[in-house]
Computed example of a mutant assay.
Amino acid sequence: MGGRVNRRAFVGSCSLAAFPGLSPGKATIDVGGLDRSRVLGDAGKFLGKKPVTPAAARSPRSAGGPNDFFSEGDYWWPDPKNPGGPYIRRDGMTNPDNFVEHRNYLMRLSVEVPALAAAWKLTRERRYAAHAAAHLRAWFVTAASRMNPNLQFAQAIHGRSTGRGTGIIDTIHLVEVARAIPVIAESGALSKDELAQIKQWFSMYVEWMTESKNGIEERDARNNHATCWVMQVAAFAEFTGNGKLMNECADRFRSAIVPAQIDPDGSQPLEASRTKPYGYCLFNLEALATLCRIVSANGHDLWGFQTGDGRGVRNAIEYMFPFIADKKKWKHPPDVMYFDEWPMRQEALLFGGLAYGRQDYLDVWRKLPAGSNVDEVVRNYFIRQPVLWI
């Protein structure tokens, strides 16, 4: 058993170290104290679960091989007028008969590995890091089980496409895994060669994201898909030490993401126009704030960026804050599905609260639920271990 982390030192690092320029005493929160019981409870359960990767299941509708990730477009259904023909779209309505095994495996990885890493960080008990390392070997190192470093066959549509650029959003669940890997490596649970192989996997994946037809298609999307593309590239660039890509992410945030997605009043019109406007606005805001958190810690102040007409993440968080604090104030129609499941403990309030010195954001954040058993929520709530971030 390792030594217990000094709580006062941990709280201090949570408040300031990850947010250069933040004035001491402006806004603070004891994330370690708040989350310790939750993290250790979850991590203890995960110690008994073996790794599962895409090699464990295959869909007859997949055009890929045994190590290829496969998923299907959420809102695509059989056509009642042509049951055996191409699927048709029903926006906001998830098809329950889709192949979801690979996505579920990836979500499980994203839930368990960061929780185990957070438990090691809080306790220094090696068993947590060792079990997390077993998952990482299975997914990114071992030839028989590792996932191929692309999403060529993600978000397929029966009768229409074997895989689309929109599928890249499935790997938002690798963002916090990438965050956890250096923490796990610090424990010594990964050898230098294993860590190098994992970094090589992420380097190959981010190369595919930035150079493939599907990757470029997703980069050029206009809504939350574009945000999530940049957020992922930034996260994987940080992990692999790719400064050139980090600079490109900062530039894209300023030139494409903010101007297209945030109105001067802070609203997100592309998300608000969907059939699940509340959930989508929260989801995109999480991605925007996580992107700011990553890139701002690597030499670019995205928190302070604002266009000439006032668009920026600061006012995007300000716009959504009243509706997170009190959903009854929401101005748009309720989501067609899962409206009652939101909000969660939205990390935009945590990251934004520390970046902007807003104690009111932190006070609301700490009162919101930190976990859910609803698949839709798990899929769209992808930053779950703030201990790894601040």
Score class of each variant (00 low, 15 high):
residue 75 Y to T: 09
residue 77 W to G: 04
residue 78 P to H: 02
residue 78 P to V: 07
residue 79 D to Y: 06
residue 81 K to A: 15
residue 82 N to M: 04
residue 82 N to C: 03
residue 83 P to D: 04
residue 83 P to V: 11
residue 83 P to W: 08
residue 85 G to Y: 12
residue 87 Y to H: 14
residue 91 D to R: 11
residue 92 G to D: 11
residue 93 M to R: 13
residue 94 T to C: 03
residue 96 P to C: 05
residue 97 D to R: 14
residue 98 N to K: 14
residue 100 V to T: 15
residue 102 H to G: 06
residue 102 H to Q: 09
residue 103 R to E: 13
residue 103 R to P: 02
residue 105 Y to F: 15
residue 105 Y to H: 14
residue 106 L to W: 03
residue 108 R to Q: 13
residue 108 R to L: 09
residue 112 E to F: 07
residue 113 V to H: 05
residue 113 V to E: 08
residue 114 P to M: 01
residue 114 P to V: 03
residue 115 A to N: 05
residue 116 L to H: 03
residue 117 A to R: 03
residue 118 A to Y: 03
residue 120 W to P: 11
residue 121 K to C: 00
residue 121 K to V: 00
residue 122 L to F: 02
residue 122 L to W: 01
residue 122 L to D: 02
residue 123 T to H: 01
residue 129 A to M: 03
residue 131 H to W: 11
residue 134 A to V: 13
residue 135 H to A: 03
residue 135 H to M: 11
residue 135 H to K: 00
residue 138 A to D: 07
residue 138 A to L: 05
residue 138 A to T: 10
residue 140 F to Y: 15
residue 140 F to H: 13
residue 140 F to E: 09
residue 144 A to E: 14
residue 145 S to C: 03
residue 145 S to R: 04
residue 145 S to G: 04
residue 146 R to P: 01
residue 149 P to I: 10
residue 149 P to T: 09
residue 149 P to W: 06
residue 150 N to V: 05
residue 152 Q to G: 06
residue 152 Q to H: 06
residue 153 F to G: 05
residue 154 A to Q: 10
residue 156 A to W: 07
residue 157 I to Y: 07
residue 158 H to P: 00
residue 158 H to L: 09
residue 159 G to I: 12
residue 160 R to T: 15
residue 160 R to I: 15
residue 160 R to D: 09
residue 161 S to R: 14
residue 165 G to M: 10
residue 165 G to H: 08
residue 168 I to G: 13
residue 168 I to V: 12
residue 168 I to C: 10
residue 170 D to P: 04
residue 171 T to L: 12
residue 171 T to M: 13
residue 172 I to M: 13
residue 172 I to R: 15
residue 175 V to P: 00
residue 177 V to I: 13
residue 178 A to F: 01
residue 181 I to K: 06
residue 182 P to Q: 07
residue 183 V to I: 15
residue 183 V to G: 01
residue 184 I to D: 03
residue 187 S to W: 03
